[in-house]
Structures are given as C-alpha cells and as structure tokens.
Nucleic acid binder design. Structure first.
Length: 923
RNA sequence: GCGCACGUGGCGUAAUUGGUAGCCGCGUCAGACUUAGGAUCUGAUACCUUACGGUGUGGGGGUUCGAGUCCCUUCGUGCGCACCA
C-alpha cells in the first residue's frame, strides 16, 4: 500500500467534520486555552501560500495543547468590511456583499483543504448584522462614557452630568479636548445644544472638529496608522490635512494604561517598542510665557526645562490660536500670507520641503526667568497637534531651533560647558550647565538631568508652569465617508447627535444605487432612501472604519450566537482572553492598539474580566515570492539558459513559477504557456534550461504566486504544513521556494514505509529495544521543547532523524510507533490520524494524550566535564556517564596538562559535581 | 536623527542557551538499480592544501580554561518612529 495523500486527507477531513471533532464548549472541569489567528480580509485573489503560515503555526499549537488536556478554543472568521470590495463595487456596480460572500466561500474551501482544527460553528463575519450589532453597541457605550483621570478608567457620562448639575466644571477630573470652566448655574442655563457640545468635550466617542488625514482620491478620512509619509497605505494616494467635524474615539485617554499594560504581556520586544514609540510618552513641563504689553499668555511644552535661560525666541505653529491673538498690525499682512501658504500645503509637501521658513508676529514674550523680551515667530516646523502648538526656542541645544536661528539671524546662547555651537547645536542631554542663573534659581555647574529636575520644581513653586506628561498618541478618527462599513447608530435631532435605542440595533446598512459620493459631496449613504428614523430625524451618513469590526472579535468568538450580549459573563469568565495570538506585525500601531483600547474600555464597564486581550503574541514573517526568469535573446524567439546568458544580449522575462521545477524550465509547458512562445527555441546547458530567480513580492504580475491548493493536490496538506514550518522560524520573513518540498514529502513516505511494506502492516506487539526507546524519547523531549518555543522547523528535523533511526533499527514496536504518531499529529494530522487508526485505535488521534518524556531512556554513556584547579577551569575530560567519583578524579589527574599545573603542589581536595565540573584544590 | 532586530557553507537553516560550529533539508558530486528518470536507495559535500596541516560564524578589540553565543567598537542589512520641542 502506497502513501496516498488524497484519499487519506479527504477521508479524515470528512470524519472530523461529521464527528464535530473540533467543536469547543465551556467545560469548567478543564483548563481553557485560547489560540487565535488574526482573521483575514477575504480578498479577491484568494489565499496564496504565504497566508497559511501563521495559521499552520497556531494550528500546531492548538492541537498540541489539546493533547495536553486543555480545552482549546481555536476559531476563525472574516474581517469582511474593507476598501477593495467597495472599489470593485464602484467599478462594476456589484454589491460588495456579493463579492465578499464569494471571496469568503473561496477562502473557506482553501482553508478546509489544509486540515485546520478550527471550530467553524463559531465563525463570524464583521459584515453580519448579528455581529456588527455589537460593534454599534460598543460605540453607544463609548458615547455614554467619559474618562475619569482620577479613577484612570471610563465612567458613565451620567455621573459627569450629575457633577455639572451640582458644581459645574469645578473639580472635574476628566480627559477632554480642552479645559472648560463653567459654574453649575451656567450649566443649567445652557440649552440642549450647548449641553451636547459641552459633553462632546468629554465623551469617549465624540464628535469633534479635528485635523484629519483627508485623502481626496479615496474620498475619505484616514486614521494615523492608515497613512505613512503623507500617503495612504491603501493605494498610496496623497493625504491632506483638513479640519473636519468627525466622530473620534478618545484613545489618548488610555495612553498611560496602554503603555503600562505592555509590561504585563508576552509580546516581542520589538513590537512593544513599536507601540511605545507610537504612544510616544514624554515627560516635561508646561510653562507660561507672558506676551509683553498684552494679557495673552503663551503656554508651551518642553522636555528641556533646564534650557530656559537660553531661550532667544518663541515659535508658534501656523494653526495656533495664539497667532491671531498676538500678531501686531504692522506684521498682520505678512503673517496672514505665511499662514495661508502653509494651509494649502499637504502634510507631505510640508515634510518634503525642509527649507527653513517663518515670519515674525511683531509681538514679544517675556522670559519668566530672565525677564528679557524675546520675539515670537510663526513657523511650520512647529506642529499644531503636539503639546500646545507653541514652543520656546533654544537654538544652542536644539537642531531645529538652531537652523531657524541661523536662517533669521537670531541670537544663540550656549548653556552647557564646552559645547561648541558655532557650527551646529549641542542636542545631547549631558554636560554641566553655564549661563543659567538669575539670583533666585542657579543651575550653573549642575548636570543636565539635575537641572531639569530643579527647574521643574522651581517653576511649579513660582506658578510659572507645571510638570506635564505628553503623548504622541492621538485620538482615533472614527468616521469614514464610505459605503462598505458599519453604519453609526446615530441620528441628528435638530442638529444634536443622539444614539439609537439599543433595542433598535442593529441599524442595517441600507441599499444605494451607486457606491460613490453624492453630487453634493455627501458620503454614499446620502443616496440611501428613507435614511432617517421613524420620527424623520436624519441618520448619520458616515460609516465606521475597518478597525471597528476587528477590535472586539476575539470576544465575540467566546459566545458568537448570543443575541443578548456581546459575550455572556459565563463565557467571558471561562475563556477570559487570548492565550496565544498569531498574526503579522503590520497591525502593530493599528488593530493591536485599538483592540487593547477597546478591551480596556469594556473592562472598565465590567463587561470583560481581563485588562489585556492578548497574553502572548507571535508575529509570523511574511512570505515573499521567488520569481523565475527566462532570457530571450533580443529580437529573436530564442531563449538562453541562465548559465550562458552573459554571452548574449538578452531581455529577462518573468516566467510562471508553476511551469518551473528546481529552476528547470518545462519546455513543453512553456511553449503552451503563451501563444507567442509556441515556437520558442532554446539554448540549453547540460540538456536543461535553467531559469534565473529573484525575491520579489508575491503577486500575479510577477507570475510567482504559488497557490496552496496546487501544493495540496500534488503533495498533500500534511506535506504543505510540514514544509511551511520547515522553511525556517515562524517569525522570520522568507521567500517561498518550492524547491526542497520533496525532502519533507520523502519523510512522510519513509514514515509510511515504517508501517507498511507492500500490503503488509508491519507493527506488532514486540518489545521496544533500548535503541527504539532512545530514539523515541529524544524526539519526545525535542518536540515538546520546540513546540513550547515555537521552533517548529527544528522539530521537523528531529522527526526526520527519528524516522531514519527507527527505520534502520527495523522498529516494529506498536508501543513506540503509537507514540510517534501522536507526536506528529499536530504537524501532520491526516497521516497521523490514518496511522493511529491502523494501529487499532478507534477514537480520533486528537484525543490521545501527549507522550511523557522519560530521561532514563536517553542517558548518554559518555559525558564531558570541565576540569578546574582552585576554581579555575583548565581543560575538558570525557568519562563514562556512570563513572564513579574515583574514576572521574583519576581521569582528571591523568588528563594531559594536569601534571604541569600541579607541578610540585599537593592535592588537598577533589570536588566532583556530576555531569558538570571537576574542581581540584591544590596548594 | 532616535529606537528595535539581525549578520553562520552554493541555498534555507541548526547549535539543548558559555562547552567538539555547520544538525536536518535543498542543491552538487560519486555509486547502485533501471529502456528511461524531474523515481528510489547508498555514500561524500565549510574553505585552503596532493598530503601533512592550516583557516574559519561581517571586520577589529576585550572578558573567559573555553565565545557563533557575553562586553566594547566598527561596517552592513531589515523593521519601527520621526521638524514630537
């Protein structure tokens, strides 16, 4: 009987499905383990061979945990809302739901062939009303909450209203857009609209006039993580800054908790670092600079409070509210011109244009420590969105201020001993302070760090400023001027935004005639008929962004069909959070921040029990394409093999990797590939046509897409699974190279031949030999350790060695082979299930318990030890593993070199630490 | 500019965490069986050298009896953040 992967895989996939082998249910008697993959966006191109990499890795872990007796939750679903389906709808008029449904069906059939242990009964799709009902529900919860900075947690907005009723804004400790001051009487006197506007300043989901990333080409607003270097991540179109009235989520309120939480979770350092950078905490001080002959006070943020004595000018961002307030009449025209010019530049243009520019406002500020008058300028190198949009400039110790000072000929005062500021600024935070004294405060002679601390203390005491922590993390912009997304559960009553009743959820996505914006420039939902409440109030026309649906999906898997709650307390208390999350790093500053925020918010509300959603995270690497080339001699239809191409003038042409094997071109398939190659001629080397290769992105246009279905058809899912893991560490990016797959396929055949010779089933009840047990237990130890450490590639090497050894030993022992099959089951489940049943078991191999390692069987007969004299090691000796203490001493003293060391000294004591070291005390 | 990874044969990688560098696989070479081989099996394969022997984990230095592994420095690659005060 030959190893027939097609028959075996089909048979057991059907068996698993029929018997619901992978169904997960709450079982209080068993410990849970939650293994999650980042769910895919179902694109039209289907899965390529890179997509399943992470799924295979997590599948192995899920199966392993199950063998260990855990109750494993391992679900899968689809992140179904997204731009590509909408773009396709705009072009073709086809409803994105139809496209999405087709793509999902394709994904499902591809996934099914690989033999994953997903519990498909828990499948979710973010575009399902049953699902997005809970996305809308969470939004309503955020709208009805504010962030209490004392409690460091979200609280009901009703509590805040009660506070306003009683005491106005006095004593309010809440994350907000801007500081507001009003009394209880003033609050009560406000009309409904004014109250609504006031509360917007505090709500966690709020409408705000914010600078947004507007992408004219996509016709929508984008979040910060959807923009890179001034271009949209999707499509690469230019992005402008634009002030718009948009729904936002007050993610920034959670900045510190998002930062602190990183300490409690098991993610890679680089990913945590990326999130820390993105959150961008900086400790500094906010200081007040009074404007001369005016009531205006400039508030600035600095991390270098120590450099106040070196401030020679101030700079405002062009968008700063202070600009209008302080510009003098004589400078008004120049300032207006400058501000207008910068407003029309996109962020990208501002970034590319590194030329120093700016304009003087005509106003002077007073340095609070020196009393000196210093000019206030406007320049676009100061960002409106960070800190207060105003800075104190210290040209001697900040390179940007330095460039500005040089360009406009402003004074530069060095503050650090020995700093040469004639050519460039001295930015390092080290050295001894000079020129920094005013009688009250003397920093001279202090180290920078001491000076910073002392200045902070001083300005707080004097009321000039206060210690302040700033974060780079901005609130998430939550509106998209798009069709294919979750509708907001929002209507406008006389212009006041109101939430729908939760009972009326979900608010279904309406039908539209076209997926484009309206002629009036409204979002596509502006085309929907009857887009209003029963009372006739207008509904919100924007939809939610992509990250809305993916922010809490891991919670929904715990209780996916619950119509009364996102997740029941029972389900949440049992499954808690994700123990192992596998996915790409590209979500580091998007999904992985938003999810953590969303989870923390729900935690504050008492809806989820864990503060962090994902305990351990593994980032699988990207699989790049490996393209093949043929070389056509110019102006001919003759192709020359790679090794000979330098002798001709050739044009490289991408050739479909699927008609190339081990870089050898199949000539007949090539001629049949395209009509223009039908009569192609070849110049061969050694009778073969060798193709060139290059590593590129996997894409259709490079003809380097390898489809997992083809691999499964030819080699089987087990071979695909093993090979993907064998390529290298899961975390590492690497090109897909089908060369080499024969190696793992051969391994499975060898394994098969251990069980079958022709039609004879070989295993019998013979006693395992010592060699059999040694081979097996080395494998148990290695594979267990490797799975725990996600080092699957080395496990597969270990399997190969073990099977080779057992073959050489002619092992027939059913006991040994049974354990071998269980060890392999997480990696190659189909062949393992087949052999498991052949060995006489009638339940699924998935229920078999994990083999227990026994050290006795793998004991080495020799052991190497370091010999030391007086604690200083000198050389190594090798002795029998069961050597007595005397034998070890003897070997140590007889070893080469010992005589030289001892040389007349007396041996006082010999210490033997078994297996490790021999210490000989001499003197 | 700041931060984080990483650098090992022709290639993908390994080295049980400071203890014989190169496991396993691909490729290559040789052989066996074959009408045939893009099948199967066996053996060899870091580099230099006919050999003896020598050199080797990007380069340089250090710690250590011992370094791919730890420290310093330098070069190179990848990723993240970036006029963030």
């Amino acid at each position: 009987m030959e190893y027939n992967h097609r028959a075996i895989e089909q048979k057991w996939q059907q068996y698993w499905k029929d018997n619901k082998v992978y169904k997960a249910e709450i079982n209080p008697d068993k410990e849970k383990f939650y293994v999650l993959d980042m769910f895919p966006y179902p694109s039209g191109a289907g899965l390529h061979v890179g997509h399943p990499l992470g799924y295979i890795a997590s599948d192995i872990f899920a199966r392993y945990k199950r063998h260990q007796g855990f109750n494993v939750l391992h679900p899968m679903g689809y992140d179904a809302y997204g731009l590509p389906a909408e773009q396709y709808a705009i072009q073709t008029g086809q409803h994105p739901e139809i496209t999405t449904r087709q793509n999902i069906a394709r994904y499902r059939s591809q996934l099914d062939k690989i033999g994953f242990c997903f519990d498909w009964d828990r499948e979710i799709k973010t575009c399902d009303p049953e699902y997005y009902k809970w996305t809308q529900w969470a939004f309503i919860k955020m709208f009805n909450s504010y962030f209490d900075t004392d409690a460091n947690a979200a609280r009901p907005i009703a509590d805040l209203i009660a506070h306003f009723e009683k005491e106005g804004s006095k004593g309010v400790k809440a994350a907000c857009g801007k500081e507001l001051h009003f009394t209880a009487d003033e609050w009560r006197a406000m009309d409904e609209k004014q109250k609504s506007d006031t509360l917007m300043n505090y709500r966690i989901a709020y409408l705000g006039n914010t600078m947004v990333n507007w992408c004219p080409k996509l016709g929508t607003v984008l979040a910060n993580d959807e923009v890179s270097e001034g271009l949209s991540i999707r499509g690469g179109y230019p992005v402008e800054q634009k002030l718009m009235y948009q729904w936002c989520l007050r993610v920034s309120a959670y900045a510190q908790r998002l930062l602190d939480g990183l300490e409690t979770i098991d993610w890679t350092d680089s990913l945590k670092e990326t999130q820390r950078n993105w959150i961008g905490r900086s400790e500094g001080a906010e200081m007040i600079f009074k404007i001369a002959d005016s009531d205006v006070e400039l508030e600035i943020f600095t991390t270098r409070a120590d450099t106040v004595f070196g401030v020679t000018f101030m700079v405002l961002a062009p968008e700063s509210k202070y600009v209008d307030m302080i510009t003098t009449p004589s400078q008004r025209a120049a300032v207006d011109e400058y501000v207008n010019a910068t407003r029309h530049k996109t962020e990208r243009e501002r970034m590319i244009d590194k030329k120093v520019s700016g304009v003087f406002t005509g106003a002077y500020a007073i340095n609070p420590l020196t009393g000196e008058k210093i000019p206030v300028w406007v320049s676009d190198y100061v960002l409106a969105g960070y800190g207060t949009g105003a800075i104190m400039a210290v040209p001697a110790h900040d390179s940007r201020d330095y460039a500005f000072a040089r360009h406009f000929n402003l004074p530069i005062i060095p503050l650090i001993e020995g700093a040469d500021v004639s050519e460039q600024s001295f930015d390092a935070k080290s050295g001894k302070m000079i020129n920094s004294s005013n009688g009250e405060l003397n920093l001279n002679g202090l180290e920078v760090k001491e000076a910073i601390a002392l200045t902070k203390k001083f300005i707080e005491e004097k009321g000039i400023g206060k210690v302040k922590v700033n974060y780079r993390l901005r609130d998430a912009i939550f509106s998209r001027q798009r069709y294919w997304g979750e509708p907001f559960p929002v209507y406008y009553k006389n212009g006041i935004p109101m939430m729908l009743d939760v009972e009326k959820l979900p608010l279904l996505l309406p039908e539209v005639d076209k997926y484009l914006p309206t002629e009036e420039g409204e979002p596509p939902l502006g085309r929907a008929k009857n887009w209003h409440t029963e009372d006739g109030w207008e509904l919100e026309k924007c939809t939610m962004p992509g990250f809305a649906g993916s922010s809490a999906y891991y919670l929904r898997y715990m209780d996916p069909r619950n119509n009364d709650a996102l997740v029941s307390p029972e389900a949440n208390n049992y499954w808690r959070n994700v123990d192992l999350y596998v996915g790409g790093t590209e979500h580091a500053t998007g999904h992985l921040i938003y999810s953590r925020f969303w989870n923390k918010f729900l935690h504050d509300l008492g809806i989820v029990c864990e503060e962090e959603p994902f305990k351990k995270l593994i980032n699988q690497g990207m699989i790049q394409g490996r393209s093949n080339f043929v070389y056509r001699i110019k102006d001919t239809n003759t192709f020359v093999s790679n090794g000979l191409k330098d002798q001709y003038d050739v044009t490289p042409i991408h050739v479909d990797v699927n008609i190339v094997s081990n870089d050898r071109l199949d000539l007949d398939k090539f001629r049949a590939w395209r009509p223009e190659f039908a009569d192609a001629e070849f110049i061969l080397e050694d009778g073969q046509y060798v193709c060139g290769y290059a590593v590129e992105k996997m894409s259709k246009s490079m003809f380097n897409v390898v489809n997992p279905d083809d691999i499964v058809e030819r080699y089987g899912a087990d071979t695909l699974r093993l090979y993907e893991m064998f390529l290298g560490p899961v975390e590492q990016s690497k090109p897909w190279d089908t060369n080499g797959i024969d190696g793992v396929n051969r391994f499975l055949k060898k394994l098969w031949n251990l069980f079958y010779k022709a039609d004879t089933f070989l295993p019998d009840d013979s006693e395992p030999t010592a060699d059999n047990l040694k081979s097996l237990h080395k494998l148990i130890q290695k594979v267990t350790w490797d799975i725990e450490h996600f080092s699957y590639n080395t496990s597969i090497s270990a399997f190969m060695i073990c099977v080779n050894e057992l073959t050489a030993q002619k092992c027939r022992s059913r006991a040994v082979l049974t354990q071998l099959v269980v060890l392999l089951a997480p990696f190659a489940p189909h062949i393992s299930e087949e052999l498991w049943h052949a060995l006489g078991n009638d339940t699924t191999v998935n229920d078999a318990s994990w083999p227990v390692f026994n050290e006795e069987y793998v004991k080495e007969n020799e052991v190497t030890m370091a010999v030391s004299f007086n604690g200083k090691a000198r050389y190594n000796i090798t002795v029998a593993a069961d050597a007595s203490r005397e034998e070890v001493e003897k070997a140590a003293l007889e070893a080469d070199g010992a005589a030289r060391w001892i040389d007349g000294k007396t041996i006082r004591k010999v210490i033997v630490v078994p297996g490790k070291i021999v210490n000989i005390v001499v003197g």
